[in-house]
Nucleic acid binder design. Sequence first.
DNA 1: CTAGCTTGTTCCATTATGTGGAACTTGGTT
DNA 2: AACCAAGTTCCACATAATGGAACAAGCTAG
Lengths: 265, 265
Amino acid sequence: MAEGDETEVRAANTGTLGKAMAVLELVALADRPLRFTEILARAGQPRATLHRQLGHLVEEGLLELNADLCYEPGLRMLKLASASWARSDLRRLAAPHLQALHELTGETVHLGVLRDAEIIYLDKVESRQAVRMASQVGKTSPAHCTGVGKAALSLLSAERLHRLFGGVELLGFTPTTITARDALEAELALIREVGHAFDREEHEAGIRCVAAAISDQQKTFVGGISVTGPAYRVGEDVLQAWAPLVRNAAAAISEEIAVRLGPRP
Amino acid sequence: MAEGDETEVRAANTGTLGKAMAVLELVALADRPLRFTEILARAGQPRATLHRQLGHLVEEGLLELNADLCYEPGLRMLKLASASWARSDLRRLAAPHLQALHELTGETVHLGVLRDAEIIYLDKVESRQAVRMASQVGKTSPAHCTGVGKAALSLLSAERLHRLFGGVELLGFTPTTITARDALEAELALIREVGHAFDREEHEAGIRCVAAAISDQQKTFVGGISVTGPAYRVGEDVLQAWAPLVRNAAAAISEEIAVRLGPRP
DNA sequence: CTAGCTTGTTCCATTATGTGGAACTTGGTT
DNA sequence: AACCAAGTTCCACATAATGGAACAAGCTAG
């Protein structure tokens, strides 16, 4: 019934699983443990239904219900995520290139892939720091204001871009964030031309980076790598100097992907 | 119908979600991308059913179906797990203690928690190494042959222990792995008495460690920390010398947990 | 201490959803 | 062309999710 909007219906047809995942995500991405009622308010689901869903999620180890009756992320997710991360082909294949890039530049190097309008960081190499190490792996950032993100977006078709950013607004994070649709398109065209993307404090103040896209020949997969550093250390000249290094590394990785996918005979 | 065994039925009553998670885990913990038929063989589920489940998992971003029709872990899990890891209270609270322990010993320090009969590593601090950093976070190891695992087990009631290891065999990994039930119980009693656990190459040859348990006063939660090093560098004397350091750190963390949970007034 | 609230939990008739045997494609092999 | 294996779709059927409503448990106020 009601086939309705053919217009890119975002709501997936994943039945029970989809609803459970929505609840899981709600809790996992919250910034603190949530009470039943808080979840109820945000989940838009009848009490009894939500109650059972939460019960199932807890029983599966995806959530935990602590002594204060607050729901928290469970450990099962960590296990699953870790296992899949460990065998990510892209990550393994890119690792030496990241390392090399780090040694050349001395700054932090990231590997990220595009998922919807977000970049998910898969790996990073950084100098010994006080900052916790894995802190960035699995983290997501908006694509339109990060180096890796813009590099990845630059390879998408106009149509796919339109789908991603169709109705939504481009959030601004700093004074330099690109928030106008047409400005972003111009930026992407430029990036496509020169082969690398800059992030000049567009996501976080005081942080600059150079990035280049990774893709297989059909541009089915899109991700990218970047070198990031604090603005006081990374001036415009430095960004420009690093650009070719990043481009080369990205190209090398893209090539290896192509080889792995096999030269169809 | 058939309420059957009341005897600790492991099969959860999580309906559709449980089945989906079983399939997800099957794929995520495999050591390579799997074809539909391979999954079919291992999942013990009718074709059509499995096909729809996989479809849903893919649509939800929990799995990905690559060009060779192989199913691989998706990125959604990584995102969720990363977000929850970042805000894990235990991890944040323990971090400075891990760091301190690392500085005292110069070796790798782990934080892990018990889940069923497994230890899941939540964090680690290690020297700068060639080995990739996050490689261990989220990883699981059997509890009966790791330092953290045995320390955690030592705090469980006999009844809970029995439930965990009831029917299953204790897998052996090296010549020194404890595989006899009664030997394990004796070891746990000893650990309970002295307050720390050793792993003398019981899980991996050439790797030794000292661990101590972390728990809240009701022993509801159980985890542990450990210092690990290669056998050639870590002799029996070193293990003994580190034991008090590890015990103290674990005690300090346990205390902080107790404080956080609040001195109920 | 009771009345009145809010928050969490359980019940159960209703029906939407997932189930799975079987039939149907698709692509490769002899 | 005939065959086989791998993947995909169909649809009558029954299981499993749904959600309104009643129930318990904790608080706070009168």
